[in-house]
Amino acid sequence: MAFADKLKSKSFLYLAEMETPKGVDLAAFADNGRHLKGRVDAVLVPDLSHAVMRLAALAGASVLKDLGLEVIVQFSCRDRNRLALQGDLLAAHVLGLSNVMATAGEPIEHGDQPGAKAVGDLSPAEFLEAAAGLAQGRDMGGRELVGKPKFCMGASVASFQDAAGAKAAVDQGASFLIAPPVFDLEAFAPLAAELKDCGATLIASVLLLKSVGMARYLNQNVPGVNISEATIKRIRSASDRPAECVKVAAETVQGLKELCGGALLMTAGWEDRLPQILDLATQ
């Protein structure tokens, strides 16, 4: 079933994020993709996330699609101007990749080529408008297209600041919303309640903690993240810490089923653990 149709169904959706490799050896990437076949409703392919240079999202998404997966392609507004973004949106359609969403992109100086120039010609809101325009057969310059692309558009709640902003994205045509990583279900509940009937499916991100150090780092450096001491202690005192981290993520997914329409699993390089998280989360 196409992702757009799944969004209309009332069931809880499972999504997984898969970073493309830094290079062209696709063996591990494809292998991880194969393990997700039939297990997730869509795979989200980020676009040069954390400003780290790697294989282009469109190519990675195309590889996963050929493996039979539903894919959401992300577009970073940081790296392309409106000409390139629109051209790549058309490319996405031609490649059969109709699920698209934009991110503003993390700061370049946090990435691995800190001297690069940022573009930022369009914001994610303007990207949605551009994609909606293309779907109606017109580009941003007002010119007519030969053949109209079709998109199922999404938006990141973080790019639109808050619930009110996210609703604006829905008005602009977003049919799914990706919320930032949830570590505390109670803290997430009000946002989930506010967006419950907004007309789009709210999908919460679940970031797999890989270590106590990572949890502490996120607490200190990422605004809005509050991983409880109890969770940190639980991971620290576990005999098999990675396995405990997998359990913590799976429990978060379980809890989210009551609150929103889906979960996006983010494993930051530990894509091989995705099946384990899914095993536990879907029990």
Binding site: P107, E109, P114, A116, K117, A118
Partner: peptide, 12 residues
């Protein structure tokens, strides 16, 4: 060499 744009507005 390719310019390091951090010194310009691109670095914030």
């Amino acid at each position: 060499a390719p310019k390091d744009w951090r010194s310009a507005r691109d670095g914030g």
